[in-house]
Design a binder for these strands. Structure first.
Lengths: 222, 222
DNA sequence: TTTAATATCCCCGAATTAGGGGATTGCATG
DNA sequence: CATGCAATCCCCTAATTCGGGGATATTAAA
C-alpha cells in the first residue's frame, strides 16, 4: 500500500517537482497538492494523507498555524515541515505546533523520499543543521561553539539583509512605490527592482505587502 | 584534511569495526580509540579529535558524564553519542550534557560516516526514532509563552472601518492578494476591490503597502 | 588570484493593483 | 417611503509589480 502524501506549498515549481518525484516512485502516492492552507481542514479530509509535507512560508494561513490545526483535527497524520530557510523561531514554533520532521528545501529528492518513509514509520527526520538547533533548545544556554571558523555569523533574525536592502525596505514600509524609492535613494528604477528581488529572496516573500508585514512585525526596520 | 575521529567504547568488536571503517575511508582518520572514559581529558588532549564517537554504556565514567567533561574542557569538539538502546532518560541526559548527535548502533557504516561529517560541519544527526523523542521533549510542555504579546486594547481611532473591511484588511496584512482574499472570504474579486477602495479612502492611503503599514502600526487588525 | 558579495543597471512578458466609472440587494432609521 | 449605508458585483484603462533572464564594476574574502 502506497504512502499517501499531501503537499502544501505556495511554490508551483516545488509542487511540480514533488509531484513528479512522489507519483513517479513506487510505494508513494501524491494524495493532494495545495497552494495555501486557507482550507487546510477540508484539504486534509479530502486527500486523506498518511504524511503531509508542509511549507512554512505561505501567504494567508502559514505552515505553523496549519500544523496546529492539522494536529488538532487529525492527530494521527504526521506533518513534515519543509522550508527554504531555517531560523530558530520557525523551527521551535513548528516543533511546538506538532511537526514530526523538519527538512530544508535543498534536500536531495532521494533523501526526501527517505524522510517521508521515516515520518510514516514514526521517525523524525531533520536536516542536520535543523537538528542542531533543536538540540540547542534543550541544552543549557551555555551554547558551546560549533566550529572555530563558524563563530562569525550574522544575526539570525535579520535575514542577512544588507544595509542598502534595509534602506529600501524602510522606504517600502513608509509606503513608497519603486519609482519613489528610486528617487529617494538616487538610483534607477531597475536597481530598486533588483534589490527588491533580493529582499524577497531573503525574506522568502513574494509581494510588497508580505515584505512590509514581515519587516514591521519582526522589527527589521526602525 | 581528514576528519580526526576519536572513539570511546567498551566493546572491542565495535572498536575494530569502526577502526576499519574510519581509517579505511579517505577523508577520515582514527585519532584515538579508548575502552573507557576514566581518563577522558588526557585522551582527548592527546588524540586531538574533530569529532568524538561516544558510547553511553561504559564501566566507570559513563558516556553522559564524559560528554559533560569533554564539552567543558573542549567546547569546540563535537560529540556524537552512539548507543544500543534508546531510552528517554539517556537521550535527554546526553543532549543536556552537550552531545551534538545521537545515533543507534544498528546504523549502517556508510550512514555513520555521513553522520560524522554532519557533526563535523555543525549538524546534529540523529536516528529518526531518537529525533522523535527529542521533539517529544519540546512538544510536551505546553507551548510556552514565546511571544508575550502586548495587551489587547482597542484603539479609539479605527477609521470607521466596517467589520468586513477589517476582515479584508486582516487578510491583506497576512500577505494575501486580491484573488486569495476573494477565495478566503468567499466573495468575488471585484468585491474585494470594492472594499479595498473604501479602505483606502478611509485610511487615506493609496497602496497595499501603506494600508498594511498603517494597519499594523496602529493596530487596526489583530 | 580566483571567488563571493554588493550594488548598480537593463529587457521582456505576465500578473496584479489603482482609479475611474456604475449597478443591485437588503436593512435599518427617521 | 426615502435616504443612507453596507455588501455584493461588473467593466475599462493605466500604472505598477513580479519573475525570469542578463550585464558590469567594486570590494572583500578565501
Amino acid at each position: 500500500m502506497a504512502i499517501r502524501v499531501t503537499v502544501f506549498d505556495d511554490n508551483k515549481k516545488m509542487l511540480d517537482s514533488l509531484s513528479v518525484l512522489i507519483d513517479g516512485t513506487p510505494g508513494f502516492h501524491m494524495a493532494g497538492i495545495f497552494l495555501n492552507c486557507n482550507n487546510v481542514i477540508s484539504d486534509v479530509q479530502q486527500s486523506q494523507p498518511d504524511v503531509i509535507l508542509m511549507d512554512i512560508e505561505m501567504p494567508g494561513v502559514d505552515g505553523i498555524e496549519a500544523v496546529k490545526i492539522v494536529k488538532q483535527k487529525f492527530p494521527n497524520v504526521n506533518v513534515m515541515m519543509q522550508t527554504a530557510f531555517e531560523n530558530d523561531e520557525n523551527v521551535f514554533a513548528a516543533i511546538c505546533a506538532g511537526a514530526s520532521g523538519y527538512i530544508l528545501k535543498n534536500t536531495l529528492p532521494a533523501r526526501i523520499l527517505e524522510c517521508i518513509v521515516e515520518v510514516y514509520q514514526g521517525g523524525s527526520p531533520m536536516s542536520p543543521s535543523v537538528a542542531r538547533k533543536v538540540l540547542g533548545f534543550l541544552q543549557q544556554p551555555k551554547t558551546a561553539a560549533i566550529h572555530p571558523e563558524t563563530s562569525e555569523q550574522h544575526d539570525v533574525n535579520d535575514y542577512n539583509l544588507t544595509t542598502r536592502e534595509k534602506e529600501i525596505l524602510t522606504c517600502l514600509v513608509k509606503g513608497m512605490s519603486y519609482k519613489m524609492i528610486a528617487e529617494n535613494c538616487s538610483i534607477s528604477y531597475e536597481t530598486v527592482r533588483s534589490h527588491m528581488k533580493n529582499i524577497y529572496d531573503k525574506l522568502h516573500v513574494a509581494s510588497m505587502t508580505e515584505a512590509v508585514a514581515k519587516a514591521i512585525n519582526q522589527k527589521l526596520v526602525t
